[in-house]
């Protein structure tokens, strides 16, 4: 499984990456980006070389291209619109969660997030994607 983690916090990218590895999920490769713009560059390079992604984690509040703009870009791009996206953010207000779901995110994880919650959400989303 190939995963892209988009967060402007290196500490948070490290936390999610380590949690995925420790959860026993079959992670072949973890890619990281500091904002939505960098994430799009990684995706374009990956897919133009024949690669693909199985899951994206993205934060919302990021300098540069934020999480909502990134999500909108994914959903407008035929090659990327089917990639499951989990939003991971400190913003758990009802309005934001509803908006993100309407934009096509498969799941929402609020920070602070224990490892077992991340693992459960990944299994839930991948189960739906492969089911």
């Amino acid at each position: 499984m190939k995963v892209l983690i988009v967060d402007d916090s290196p500490a948070m990218r490290s936390y999610v990456s380590r949690t995925l590895q420790a959860a026993g999920l079959d992670i072949a490769n973890t890619l990281e980006a500091g904002d939505g713009g960098e994430a799009m560059s990684i995706l374009d390079k990956l897919y133009s070389g024949g690669g693909s992604l199985d899951l994206i984690f993205t934060d919302l509040n990021m300098p540069g291209v934020g999480g909502e703009a990134f999500l909108g870009h994914l959903r407008r791009h035929a090659a990327y619109e089917k990639i499951p996206v989990l939003v991971i953010s400190t913003d758990t207000t009802q309005t934001r969660v509803l908006r993100i779901r309407e934009m096509g995110a498969q799941g929402y994880i609020s920070k602070p997030c224990p490892p077992k919650l991340i693992r459960a959400k990944v299994e839930q989303v991948l189960g739906k994607a492969h089911g």
Partner: peptide, 28 residues
């Protein structure tokens, strides 16, 4: 970096409890 992320999380968690129906933008 971790202290910054903890500040971000505490702030976000606090604001979500304070105004759960509102959207907030947090700086880095």
């Amino acid at each position: 970096q971790v202290a910054g992320e903890l500040t971000n999380m505490i702030c976000g968690c606090f604001l979500s409890r304070l105004e759960s129906a509102q959207i907030f933008e947090l700086s880095a």
